[in-house]
Design a protein around this nucleic acid. Structure first.
Lengths: 101, 101
DNA sequence: GCCTATTCATAAAG
DNA sequence: CTTTATGAATAGGC
């Protein structure tokens, strides 16, 4: 982005990667908050670092509520706005009920 | 941001809000993918528009797996990297177990 | 949806 | 941590 373009590959230098992770993570969360305020949207973000540390953000209410709402919506919604996922047919309800017969 | 600064309030004009929502949502998801690739992180994003439409992104695997992983981690993690939330003391496990005694 | 002027984010350096 | 040069995101128009 600055001082030279960055290539979209995994950053191999651990120090460099850590610095970039911190900066971009902050930027991403900021963007999410802005989108939430400007467009009155409800946004949740879950981030796991390489080392498995969890970072989260819920712009409205709690992540708990958001996941619960997600569980309901994804069972009704046929298609989401992003085409990254090939579309999984697994019902989201299974996630919460599979261990409780 | 461009052609004039935007104030951080809810955009009242519905058309304008819709346009901004589309543009910024795309930008947010792109940033998330970049962060995921560059820093080898696992990221999930859930977005509900004003009208309740769901948009989602899981950079690695499925949202189902990510939520499952989140459930486990948030019970172990004491603090997340973001200070937006005042810190909720409710155990995340309650979310999935409260209805099953 | 595409284009362009402008603001924003951020990689590299101090 | 703070600064700064530069690429990226995006608001407003078509």
């Amino acid at each position: 982005m600055a001082r030279g373009k960055v290539q979209m590959r995994r950053i191999e230098n651990p120090v460099h990667r850590q610095v970039t992770f911190c900066k971009r993570r902050a930027g991403l969360l900021k963007k999410a908050k802005e989108l939430s305020v400007l467009c009155d949207a409800d946004i949740g973000i879950i981030i796991f670092s390489t080392h498995g540390k969890l970072y989260e953000l819920a712009t409205n209410g709690t992540m708990r509520d958001l996941i619960e709402r997600y569980r309901q919506s994804c069972g009704e919604t046929q298609n989401v706005g992003d085409s990254t996922q090939p579309k999984v047919s697994t019902s989201c309800f299974d996630l919460f009920c599979s261990s409780h017969s």
